[in-house]
Design a protein around this nucleic acid. Structure first.
Lengths: 197, 197
DNA sequence: GTCTATATAGAGATAGAC
DNA sequence: GTCTATCTCTATATAGAC
């Protein structure tokens, strides 16, 4: 609403990109202040400590997730677009050479401040609750087919996306795409045929 | 063969534990020298730079992998024990609150020195080649059942293990176990029944 | 092969002027 | 709200004595 975007938001946006690219411990205040043409002290004004910055980062993810899933969790609806959106979001991450918020917290887990861990745990809980519901509704309606508990399937699905995205960093061929293809198979979804020979 | 274990090996062992626990950028020379009762300079004597230390770490993983898979890659053999050993190794990592070597490289990818990235890529390549072969032989012999290409299945399997182990860090319930259960289902392996009600 | 001592650079953070 | 200036701590790394 102000001029272009306020400094606080620009700091947060850049911090998010940096964290997804290099991990939370992989960037410094300088990596933010220099490109934005401000001083480190200005960042400290908006986020007194780096922990505050990290917290704001995860909270924003949580808010986004909630605003996207609230209606579905209450009223249900067509689960397929939700599932496709999840796949697409990891494809976007992969194109940006970025890791997902869960990976960011999980991998540096034992070096991160407690408050960030708590936010991270909540984010995973909420993500899994939502995905479990999506799978459950999908199977009930007959658009998804799989054995076992929806909860288990949700964990396996999220795990594969996260890992697939990471493996993709180390290989030019598209490990994430192949992981998603595998997931589609396990969910009874049509697999875009690779037009074999 | 010397006294107990030589300093170089003790440094490497501790560095490995630290890297798996906190990531490669998450530990310092001090974290090694202090517990070992030596000085930072002693570490630099054995590993001139931290890059050298990281390289030695990944090379040791590669050597271990090769010594374990060489015979199978040449002569084949029963693939099931190999698959079970893979699952078991991730279960062990999870108990140790550790991430796998692939995660270590993948997550800090854009902050690691080139030589480490190259070693990491090779490690992934070799792991995938081996796992692909295990799955291929398993299906040919009828002990595994799955659709799609063995290569795709190998990527999806490794991805799920990696991601499941990471998610497990953020949750007390056993996300990795559930991921493995899911993988067993997708491979036509018996799933230890949870003795439902 | 390990030590002491030191160099150098970078991190996150704070005080106080504007 | 952003600046300059500075503090403190920690990191990797090197030189040279023992």
């Amino acid at each position: 609403m102000g001029t272009a975007t306020d400094t606080k938001t620009r700091i947060l946006d850049l911090a998010e990109r940096l964290a997804r690219h290099k991990g939370f411990n992989g960037f410094s205040y300088r990596d933010i202040s220099e490109p934005l043409g401000i001083r480190n002290a200005a960042i400290h004004y908006h986020f007194p400590s780096k922990t505050d910055l990290g917290l704001a980062l995860i909270r924003r993810y949580r808010d986004l997730l909630r605003s996207r899933t609230r209606r579905f969790m209450k009223e249900g609806g067509d689960p397929l677009p939700h599932l496709e959106a999840l796949f697409a979001s990891y494809e976007r991450l992969s194109l940006d050479q970025s890791i997902c918020p869960i990976s960011i917290v999980a991998v540096d887990y034992y070096t991160l401040p407690e408050p960030m861990l708590n936010e991270g745990k909540q984010f995973v809980d909420e993500t899994l609750a939502w995905l479990t519901r999506v799978l459950e509704v999908g199977r009930d309606r007959g658009v998804l087919r799989f054995d076992g508990e929806p909860r288990e399937k949700a964990i396996g699905t999220l795990a594969a996306l996260q890992g697939g995205n990471q493996i993709a960093r180390l290989r030019e061929d598209d490990a994430l795409q192949q992981t998603i293809t595998e997931l589609r198979r396990g969910l009874g979804l049509p697999v875009a045929s690779p037009a074999k020979d």
